[in-house]
Simulated scan of single mutants.
Amino acid sequence: MTTPTSRTVFAAAHVVADPRRDNTPGTPAALDWDTTLAFRHHLWSLGLGVADAMDTAQRGMGLDWPTTRELITRTGTEAKATGGRLACGTGTDQLTSTAVSLTDIQNAYEEQLEVVEEAGAQPILMASRALAATAQSPEDYLHVYGELIRQARRPVILHWLGEMFDPALAGYWGSTDLDQATATVLALIREHGPDRIDGIKISLLDADREIALRRALPEGVKLYTGDDYHYPELIRGDEHGHSHALLGIFDPIAATAAAALHALDAGDPDRYNALLAPTVPLARHLFAAPTYHYKTGIVFLAYLAGHQNHFTMVNGAQSARSVPHLVELFRLAEQAGALPDPDLAAHRMRHYLTVAAGVTP
């Protein structure tokens, strides 16, 4: 399938654990590399870009830095071979403590930036728990990010992840007042402009705030929605503009999302709306509080859809959602058309219920 032309779109991809190896909490991540990379080829085959080594891939929730580095390198090799678009998270999670200096944080970012650029990927400057814990003012954020933006070989994507996705990021950009935080990030973007900053991904689950930021951006700087609640209307846009996308929900609904974006390219907003509307209840349930456990639902849907043959996760995260939550997820996924083989999905759902709940449907 061809790449959508009217929007730049990345699906944030999950990783597939190796069920034969130890993936209990606190152990180094052990991945099934063949299946992990096959899923990225699936996304590219639909015309979507891949955002790798992001929170959907369990960064900070089980995916350690050595495994992340290997993931970036391996996915970069596959992207070069196939021509797939790739952006990768650049963070500071190799730091073992948040009790560090701004120099330590900058050095950690720089180490990861080199890995991402060597892989041929576009850097996404991820929100840093260490920076959130260490920075004393908005100026500290402007200093660290400014140095990284100047060093990057190509325009970067900034990353603003709300505390509903990671409580350790409360007060990011130097303030718990979102208006002040927005003013800081806008100052950063205006200083460096579109030659150095491709765009900013914002995941605050606040459509009005996203639209206001989008309208305030300098010309040529994209707003990548990370709003897994309001993505259809934000991507569709209004008379003043639209959002692009870097979304975790596009992992399980990739085929539907690609078809909807092609409808938008063809000037058919009614078909776009009809395709994406049934996916919204699924997304809202998937990303329900505690939102940071959404990865469990993502992997469960990949199992039901046949993209992997087991429901095992890095860090033992398959236990992070309840049986009733996953039963409702199955129902909503079926209604959304997110299960390409309904018979397989039903068989696997019955097997899961038998094993996890002692229920024989």
Score class of each variant (00 low, 15 high):
residue 40 R to P: 01
residue 252 P to F: 13
residue 219 E to I: 14
residue 35 T to E: 09
residue 175 S to E: 02
residue 359 V to E: 02
residue 251 D to Y: 04
residue 337 G to T: 12
residue 227 D to N: 14
residue 132 A to T: 15
residue 270 D to S: 08
residue 50 V to I: 14
residue 231 Y to E: 03
residue 75 T to F: 01
residue 226 G to D: 02
residue 32 D to T: 12
residue 67 T to I: 15
residue 273 N to P: 00
residue 139 E to P: 00
residue 274 A to R: 13
residue 166 D to V: 12
residue 253 I to L: 13
residue 35 T to G: 05
residue 356 A to S: 11
residue 354 T to A: 13
residue 29 A to P: 00
residue 26 G to L: 10
residue 298 I to R: 07
residue 27 T to G: 01
residue 226 G to R: 13
residue 95 L to V: 11
residue 235 I to D: 00
residue 222 K to N: 04
residue 135 A to H: 05
residue 90 T to Q: 04
residue 192 H to V: 15
residue 207 A to R: 15
residue 346 A to S: 09
residue 104 D to T: 13
residue 349 M to W: 08
residue 55 D to T: 13
residue 222 K to V: 10
residue 128 S to L: 11
residue 103 T to S: 12
residue 254 A to L: 10
residue 151 Q to E: 07
residue 20 R to F: 03
residue 337 G to R: 12
residue 165 F to H: 12
residue 105 I to S: 05
residue 109 Y to G: 01
residue 76 G to S: 11
residue 72 I to C: 02
residue 167 P to H: 10
residue 313 M to C: 10
residue 85 R to E: 06
residue 310 H to Q: 10
residue 124 I to N: 01
residue 58 Q to G: 00
residue 333 A to D: 02
residue 328 E to R: 15
residue 168 A to H: 03
residue 308 Q to W: 02
residue 120 G to I: 13
residue 83 G to D: 04
residue 213 L to N: 04
residue 223 L to C: 06
residue 207 A to H: 08
residue 266 A to Q: 11
residue 308 Q to L: 15
residue 234 L to Y: 05
residue 217 L to R: 08
residue 93 D to Y: 12
residue 315 N to S: 08
residue 3 T to C: 09
residue 354 T to G: 09
residue 57 A to R: 04
residue 260 A to F: 10
residue 234 L to N: 04
residue 30 A to G: 02
residue 223 L to A: 08
residue 302 A to W: 06
residue 113 L to A: 03
residue 137 S to L: 08
residue 51 A to N: 01
residue 280 V to R: 09
residue 67 T to A: 11
residue 170 A to T: 15
residue 83 G to W: 06
residue 120 G to P: 03
residue 319 S to C: 02
residue 347 H to L: 12
residue 2 T to H: 10
